[in-house]
Write a protein that binds this DNA or RNA. Structure first.
Lengths: 107, 107
DNA sequence: ATTCATTTTGTAAATAAATTACAATGTTTG
DNA sequence: CAAACATTGTAATTTATTTACAAAATGAAT
């Protein structure tokens, strides 16, 4: 499969997933997590933003947005924040590996 | 395939593509199109934002970001803005149909 | 039940980003 | 070169975000 097939084959739009970065307000809308809570999680080191590299305001990549969604699910299931974060770590590693692999295969 | 497999199977993270909305600044970073130009295209009716529904500032969904990227490609190939927009319309319809279909199949 | 740690939420003042509406400058083509 | 098309500039205003303080919830253990 070649890069340009991506145009209509969304199943493999990793370029987009890889490029996309989103401000805290939009992340809040996407995930339904209050901005205040997102900042707290970041303060605790559970998620990370691209602030330093990108600008003055927080920017989150796909990996971290996904992380938030997963943590939120586990919180709802009754896990503590730390436990959720720990559990999610493993999944995130899988996601990262898959993204890396797919990036290699389809570019 | 069920909804929760999405967690590690990124090939089918349509939920994300469907939910994601991005501010004009981030769209500009993602696409390398100046914000000024994005606003101009919107003024011309070539792309649309979710401003009215969402808030005071412009928010773009996946479809419109994709549209911008495609238009940009065609502009580089020498098409005029209107011609590019017209050409892209057809591709966008395909993208929309595919998104709709995949949403139905994998949820 | 009260203590204690964890987690979420509130808010004011300052900074950063986006909007609008005006216009100016490029660019292309007949 | 004229004329339509397209991009870019910018000042003043509005909106969003940040930080840093603190106050409430929440929950578990003693």
């Amino acid at each position: 499969m070649n890069k340009n097939d991506n145009i209509t084959n969304l199943s493999f739009d990793f370029e987009f997933l890889d490029k996309v970065i989103v401000g805290i307000g939009e992340v809040s809308q996407i995930t339904n997590i209050p901005t205040r809570q997102i900042r707290y999680w970041e303060d605790k080191g559970i998620i990370t933003s691209l602030t330093e590299k990108e600008g003055k305001n927080r920017r989150y990549d796909y990996k971290n947005i996904k992380k938030m969604l997963l943590i939120k699910e586990l919180l709802d299931e009754g896990y503590t924040l730390d436990a959720s974060a720990e559990k999610v770590k493993k999944r995130i590693i899988l996601i990262e590996e898959m993204l890396k692999k797919l990036k290699k295969d389809y570019s």
